[in-house]
Amino acid sequence: MKINENTLLEGHKVVLVPYNADHVPRYHEWMKSPELQQLTASEPLTLEQEYDMQRSWREDSDKCTFIVLDKQRWADTGVEEEQCMVGDVNIFLTDPTDPSVAELEIMIAEPSYRGKGIGKEVTLMMMCYGVTKLGVKKFQAKIGLDNQVSIAMFKKLQFQEASVCKVFKEVTLELTVDESVRTRLLDDTANVKERDYRQTCSNRQELVSS
């Protein structure tokens, strides 16, 4: 999606940045993991296919993605951006007749970053972006039945179970964005700053010290 190609979102622990070609090699290494393939219901791609996928994420009007970076590591200008990557978060506009319905996916690919509240922070940041910038009024999350950690996190965020697919072994959770949900989202992400990505890249340390 073109809308976020120069958008950086800064939270407490993470920075969300557009998915660029520079990120692809690290992302490709992640997706060789059988565990991540299972958690994301993905097939392994060649590196060339991964570059094609990155281009489609950038160009397609029904997909929006950010790469999740460790904010503290990213503040160190001696560390390459791809070395700060910890996961990604995506919104798919799944219904061509209703662009206000979106499927939300989050992946914390680096095991050492799991269980630290990062997934929740990233999810709230992306939901707020979806509501305020993309006009999302209903979120869906499709999660493997084995992934109890993710299911529990979405339920804590007031998603409700909508259906269970035994064939694909996944549950669909949903949240309709009414005024109370919108207010809660804005409150929970009041600290998040939106910045110009290219401009901020040239002076990373200032971001964390500001």
Rank of each mutant, 00 (worst) to 15 (best):
L124A: 00
R198C: 11
A162K: 09
G144D: 12
T176V: 15
D95N: 14
V164T: 07
G87C: 01
K142W: 09
Q205I: 01
T7H: 07
L157K: 00
V208C: 14
I118M: 06
V192R: 00
D146H: 15
T77N: 10
S202G: 14
C201E: 11
Q72I: 09
G78D: 15
R184V: 03
K71A: 08
K13F: 07
Q148P: 00
I151G: 10
V86R: 03
D88N: 07
M53L: 15
T94R: 13
T7N: 04
S112N: 08
R204C: 05
A190Y: 03
G87M: 01
D60N: 15
E82W: 10
T77K: 13
D178P: 04
Y197P: 11
T65W: 07
Q83I: 04
V14I: 06
N90C: 08
R184T: 12
G78F: 10
V79N: 09
K32M: 05
T123W: 05
R198D: 15
P44S: 00
V164E: 06
V177T: 10
V89A: 13
Y197C: 10
K137N: 12
L207A: 04
C201L: 14
T189I: 10
T65D: 13
D62G: 12
K2R: 11
I151S: 12
L104C: 03
R195S: 08
A102M: 06
G78W: 09
F139D: 06
S180M: 13
V24C: 01
A162V: 02
L145K: 08
K142G: 13
V167A: 09
D187K: 13
K63W: 10
L157G: 00
M153Y: 01
A21M: 12
T123I: 12
A162W: 03
Q140T: 13
V192Y: 04
D62F: 15
E170S: 15
S180D: 13
K2A: 05
D98T: 02
D76K: 11
S61Y: 10
V101G: 02
I151Q: 15
M31V: 05
V15F: 09
G115V: 05
I151F: 09
T94G: 07
P18T: 08
I151M: 14
G130A: 14
T189N: 13
Q38K: 12
P25K: 06
L186Y: 11
V68G: 00
M125Q: 06
Q148S: 08
K63M: 11
T189V: 11
P34L: 11
G144T: 11
A152D: 13
I151V: 14
V14E: 00
F66Y: 07
Q199P: 00
S180Q: 14
P44C: 00
M107L: 15
I118Y: 07
V177A: 08
S209Y: 13
W57K: 07
Q54L: 00
I3F: 03
I67S: 04
S33L: 03
G78N: 15
Y27K: 00
T7W: 04
S61M: 09
P96L: 09
L207T: 07
N20T: 15
K166P: 12
L69K: 06
G11P: 08
D60F: 12
L124K: 01
Q199L: 09
G11L: 06
E43L: 13
T7Q: 08
I106R: 04
D60G: 12
D95Q: 11
C128Q: 14
